[in-house]
Write a protein that binds this DNA or RNA. Sequence first.
DNA 1: GCCAACGTTGGC
DNA 2: GCCAACGTTGGC
Length: 164
Amino acid sequence: MAASNSKTGKAKSYWLVKTEPSTYSIDDWEKEKDKTTFWDGVRNYQARNTLRDLMKLGDEVLVYHSNAEPPEIVGVAKVVREGYPDFTALDTNHPHYDPDSTSDNPRWFMVDLKLIKRFKKRLSLAQAKEINELSGMELLRKGSRLSVQPVKANEFQAILEYCS
DNA sequence: GCCAACGTTGGC
DNA sequence: GCCAACGTTGGC
């Protein structure tokens, strides 16, 4: 039986988000009030659509450190607020400001995520490549750059098992 | 630091 | 609508 989402009763979905630890790491996240943060700054349409339309309350999200040594999956978060306009795109003083996004017609979206697990045993990209179950993972696709991406239930499960 | 892969822009 | 040029991502 598939895990169900406690809020909607529908099947839970799984995702992965990337962050560069030199900018925002899981340690920074840990210090947030209620371990909750808004996932701003995504400026890619496919990822935007995921944030706006697909990520639902209670969905679980792998946290990945990109541009890191080593690059690795470091924990799990969950969606605590569904898609809403990314206000940093509307703020002229913000580095993520986008003049083409307006409050009437917002172009970029974000969700709120709460950190729920820090892996004691992290899964590096190199290690992930050794796990058969993960061979089809979007993260492992050559040239994959999507910063918000879907994860299959069996992939999520395999990663949890490895990291616990 | 290098560079392959990718998404976006803009001339035509 | 094509596609070259460009900027960015992100592993190595």
